[in-house]
Design a protein around this nucleic acid. Structure first.
Lengths: 175, 175
DNA sequence: CGAAAGATTGACCGGCCGGTCAGTACGTGG
DNA sequence: CCACGTACTGACCGGCCGGTCAATCTTTCG
């Protein structure tokens, strides 16, 4: 608190006066950050037909958002560690939207049908987030704006995802 | 500290006497947990030839380890949030081992060559960890030992990964 | 202008928390 | 048995941290 106050050039008391309590301040920060995140995600999932090109674009948009908003990334990780249930509705809304889009693409024959849509969504998210979970990348991530390595990873992740979810001669029995 | 003491049935002073400080206790916890993790990972990467069956088995072993050791999972997430650099050497060792195995498989023609090995490792890890990052799964994850949904996810993730990294008619130029 | 409402401050408080310390119980070797 | 090292305890401390409060400065508006 004192630190935040000093950093903001105001007094602790003022912060308290304005927000009520530390928890309330924290909740407000979460609310704001999360609404950005939510908006960006829902924009990704605008109701166009999900073509491979759009999926690639979605992946890149999401990836770049995380690159550009490390604080949001941190906050989400933190909230999950703490078991924070605020914003749960928004999370579910985003999730359901993504699942619906994937299902539609499956029915249109654009994505393999032998993987359940919720799981496919998880793999999509996991592939993007994988970059940010690698501890060995932490330094170069935090430092500066050179995202060449990151974008090279994104390219690889997309290649694997695209090949992984395409309909094709999979030896698994289809649903 | 008081809580840990009460939980362990000893006094705060004894803990301090034994470990020196709170940080030292924490470091010890990290050391022990991490060594389990490290051992399990290195066992995964024993120097057998990396066949698809072995990769599937590796994925499942890793996945089950995370299922069975949620505390380790939490600790890793925490350490990354805090930027904790302890155990960095071990992380790098595990990473390099995995990369070497993937490279060998690429050279043996078992994995596509147009994705760099470090990135392929990240996708592998990301796909497994994706399950544990989904906030909507948190409740059922924490509760009880019913892992059927988890194993169903694993199956899906493997399908996508297997199809994604296999050599085949990819339209991308190969390296 | 002048009063009411709001912004902003500094001084202060009480509890928590990591840590210290003097002292006690206990086991073990001479 | 005794001396000594070691496990172990309870009481206490000092700083931090979230929070309160009375007082002052600023703005707004009748």
């Amino acid at each position: 608190m004192s630190e935040i106050a000093k950093g903001s050039g105001v007094t602790k008391s003022l912060i308290h006066h304005h927000f009520g309590s530390k928890d309330a301040l924290w909740a407000e920060v979460k609310r704001r950050r999360f609404s950005e995140y939510h908006a960006q995600q829902m924009k990704l999932l605008s109701p166009e037909t999900l073509t491979p090109e759009l999926m690639r674009e979605s992946m890149e948009t999401y990836f770049r958002f995380l690159l550009d908003n490390p604080a949001t990334l941190r906050m989400n990780a933190w909230m999950q560690l703490e078991g924070d249930r605020d914003n749960t509705e928004s999370v579910i809304e985003m999730r359901d939207e993504g699942i619906a889009r994937i299902r539609a693409a499956q029915e249109a024959g654009l994505l393999r049908r032998d993987v359940e849509a919720p799981f496919m969504l998880l793999t999509f998210l996991g592939l993007v987030q994988a970059w940010f979970m690698d501890p060995t990348m932490a330094e170069q991530r935090d430092a500066g704006s050179d995202h060449t390595a990151a974008l090279a990873y994104l390219d690889s992740a997309w290649k694997i995802f695209a090949a992984g979810v395409s309909v094709g001669p999979h030896d698994t029995t289809d649903a």
